[in-house]
Design a protein around this nucleic acid. Sequence first.
DNA 1: GTAGGACCTGGAGCGCGGTCCAGGTCAACG
DNA 2: CGTTGACCTGGACCGCGCTCCAGGTCCTAC
Lengths: 128, 128
Amino acid sequence: MSQPTAARDGLSVGEAAREAGVSIDTLRYYEREHLLSTERTPSGHRRYSPGDLEWIAVLTCLRETGMPIRRMREFATLVGEDDDATIGARIDLLTEHREDVLRRIRELEANLAHVEGKIAYYRGRSAG
Amino acid sequence: MSQPTAARDGLSVGEAAREAGVSIDTLRYYEREHLLSTERTPSGHRRYSPGDLEWIAVLTCLRETGMPIRRMREFATLVGEDDDATIGARIDLLTEHREDVLRRIRELEANLAHVEGKIAYYRGRSAG
DNA sequence: GTAGGACCTGGAGCGCGGTCCAGGTCAACG
DNA sequence: CGTTGACCTGGACCGCGCTCCAGGTCCTAC
């Protein structure tokens, strides 16, 4: 092939990892867990398309909001079916997750207030 | 001893666990990790005072805000030294933790917005 | 005195989310 | 051609925060 390297289609796993801000091992792990699947070069190397990168960003967002891998797999399966009949299920899953996140934020805020109270208490003790 | 059961001093580990909303194993684990220490009855059973319960509540608050056990141990050590010279250090530790929690809340809120965007997108798709 | 239940200890096991490793293949460079 | 570095696989390993288990003690009630 006379195609120059720069013009090849998609990113290598190392490039994709750097781009997405995750480790190479994490990308391979997600693939094992069926959260993600990629094209391969004839020799078996993974190639990440822009769409793949967007999807990885979605996965990362879900992870960072504490969604377990198991649940992410459910979502990935729904999306992977690429059937509009699953859209309701996708909305339900994300909506439930949204509730979880909101609950966790409220919980954090409540506990934060305790921590701040404790700080204030110690400030008083060290001043008085 | 003629002392009635109800008048004995402090709660058993089972009672304390129920009261504090954690498992018995967790209380014993915290003790192994030097986050906590309790009086014992002559026969070796743990007894939890009201002060112990308050401390467990503090530990629980720190855990729920994501402080690692290792860091909780640092804090427990400072408090355990019962030396006013450590109060500055306690304030510093809690203040750092407060920053961590605030960061995490902000992160969650940012990611939450993405999740909500996704929900809106799917709603549009299923409506359109 | 004996049955049951709560407690004790030390240590193994678990679920999670990766992370690392060995042993091999592949691609580009000089 | 050989070297170098990124990639491949399957599987072992890790840190965390518990959780469970075996084998034993102790207390209470009948």
